[in-house]
Design a binder for these strands. Structure first.
Lengths: 231, 231
DNA sequence: CGGAGCATTGAATTGCATCAAGGCACGTGG
DNA sequence: CCACGTGCCTTGATGCAATTCAATGCTCCG
C-alpha cells in the first residue's frame, strides 16, 4: 500500500471535501484509501453495471461520467473536477461509466470500511452528506442548462464551468484548455458535434470568444457569456 | 403543536424514508416537526431566494420544484411524490420555488434541530444520506431524459414516472391522473405546451395511450412506452 | 544516424438540404 | 373563462458530405 497524501494540487476550487477534514479524519480516510493513477486520457475507471464496492475521490485530473442510452448514444452526465466524489450505484451496481479525460489520480474508498467510518464519526458523515447535496445542486443546474433551447446558451454555461478550474483555466490570459473532444461536449449538452462547432463559430463571430486552437478557447467577453448562460 | 403521525397513505412507493425509521427515531423527528396542510393546488410552500431554515418531508399530495430562468421561463426541476424530501439551499437561501399540484401535507423540519439530531444519531443521518444519493440518481435520470431529442421519448419517460404513484395511477385500469397542466409538463420536459399536446396526439395515433380526458391518460401499450423511454 | 519532407489518420469546421419543435392564431370543450 | 387541441408558417438543430487542420508516422536522403 503506497503512502497517500489526501489532497494536493493548487487553487482553491469549490467545496473540496478534503480541505475540511480534521487531521484525525484525514488519517482515518487515508487508512482505508488506495491511490490509483491513470497516466493518460481515455482510460476507464469502471463501467456501468459493474459491481459497486468503492467510492472514489478525484484528486487530480478530470473524468467524465456517462450513461449509455438505448439508442446507442451516450449521455455524459457530468465532468468531474478535483475534489469531486463519484461512484453512484443502484442495486449494488454502478450506474455510470467513468473515463479519464486527462492524466488523473483518484483515491479508492472501499464502501464497507467507509460506511463503518461514517457511522462512527457523524461529523465526517455530515461532510459527505453536504457533498451529496452539493452534487444534487449541480445536477439541478445541469437540468436547467439542458432546458435551454438555444445551443449558444448551453455552450456558454459549459464554458463558464471552467472558471474555477485551476488546471484547465488561466485567469490571467482567460484561456480555457478543453480536455475533451467536440463530441464529448456534444454528448454532455445534448447536441451534435457539428452543432458544437457551429455554436463556437457563432460565438467567435459575436466576439464572445476567440479560438486560439481547437482546444484553447480565449474567453473574450466574460460578461456576455454570463448573460447568455442561465442562473 | 398538532399531534403528528410521521407517515400515512397506502401503497409501497419508492424509498420512503419514514418507513425505515425506528420508533425512537420517528419520535425524535416528530418532536421537531410541524405538519403543514395545503388544501388546494397552486399554493406556494416557499420561493427561490427565501431564507432557508427548514427541510421538508412530503407526506401526501404532490408538489413541483421549479427554478426561474433569466429568459422569464421557468424550469421545473422535479415533481415530488410522497416520501420525498425538499428544501435544497445554497448560501442560506432556497434555490427552488415549491408549489402544490394537489392538496398536500408536508412536515417541516427546522434545520438547526435536524442537524443536531443527525449528528447525535449517525444511523439516522445515514438514512438522509441515502435519500440524498437517491435523489441524485433521479436527477441524473432527468438529465438523460432531457438529453433525448425526441418529444415522444421525453413524454414517455414522464408518463412512466407515475407507475409507482399510488395516488395518481391505478394499476388495474392503467389510468394516470395528471395533476398538472400541459404547460407544467412542458416546463418540466423543456418543450412548449403545444408540443406536449401534439406529442400526446401522436402517441394516441400510434396506439400507445388513450386520452379519456385531458387529465386522464390510459396507458394502452405499456411495453411500447417503455421501449420509447430510455433505460 | 538524424532530420526534412511527405503521407496517413482522425478531429474539427463548414455548406447545404431536411425535419421537427416553436410561435401564433384560432377553434373547442369542460 | 381558462385550458387544451390543431393548422400554418418560421426557425434552428440535425445529418450528410466535402474540406481544412493538426498530429503523428514514415521514408528517403544527406
Amino acid at each position: 500500500m503506497p503512502s497517500i497524501s489526501f489532497s494536493r494540487t493548487g487553487g482553491g476550487e469549490r467545496n473540496r471535501l478534503d480541505r475540511l477534514l480534521t487531521p484525525k479524519q484525514r488519517a482515518r480516510l487515508e487508512g482505508i484509501a488506495s491511490a490509483l493513477t491513470y497516466p493518460a486520457r481515455n482510460l476507464t475507471v469502471y463501467r456501468e453495471g459493474q459491481d459497486a464496492n468503492a467510492l472514489y475521490f478525484l484528486n487530480f485530473g478530470m473524468v467524465e461520467l456517462a450513461c449509455q442510452k438505448q439508442d446507442g448514444n451516450r449521455q455524459i452526465v457530468s465532468f468531474l473536477h478535483p475534489g469531486d466524489l463519484f461512484g453512484l450505484f443502484e442495486h449494488e451496481r454502478y450506474v455510470n461509466t467513468v473515463r479519464t479525460l486527462a492524466p488523473t489520480e483518484v483515491f479508492r474508498l472501499p464502501l464497507a470500511e467507509l460506511r463503518r467510518l461514517l457511522v462512527e464519526d457523524a461529523q465526517l458523515q455530515l461532510l459527505f452528506l453536504t457533498k451529496a447535496v452539493h452534487d444534487l445542486r449541480r445536477a439541478q443546474r445541469q437540468i436547467s442548462v439542458l432546458g435551454q433551447r438555444d445551443a449558444l446558451q448551453r455552450l456558454a454555461s459549459f464554458l463558464l464551468e471552467f472558471l474555477y478550474s485551476s488546471q484547465f483555466y488561466d485567469p490571467d490570459t482567460r484561456v480555457v484548455t478543453l480536455p475533451m473532444s467536440r463530441s464529448d461536449i456534444a454528448d454532455y449538452l445534448a447536441l451534435t458535434q457539428e452543432s458544437v462547432s457551429r455554436a463556437l463559430a457563432r460565438m467567435e463571430a459575436e466576439g464572445l470568444i476567440r479560438r486560439r486552437s481547437a482546444k484553447l478557447i480565449h474567453l473574450q467577453n466574460l460578461r456576455g457569456l454570463m448573460t447568455l448562460a442561465a442562473f
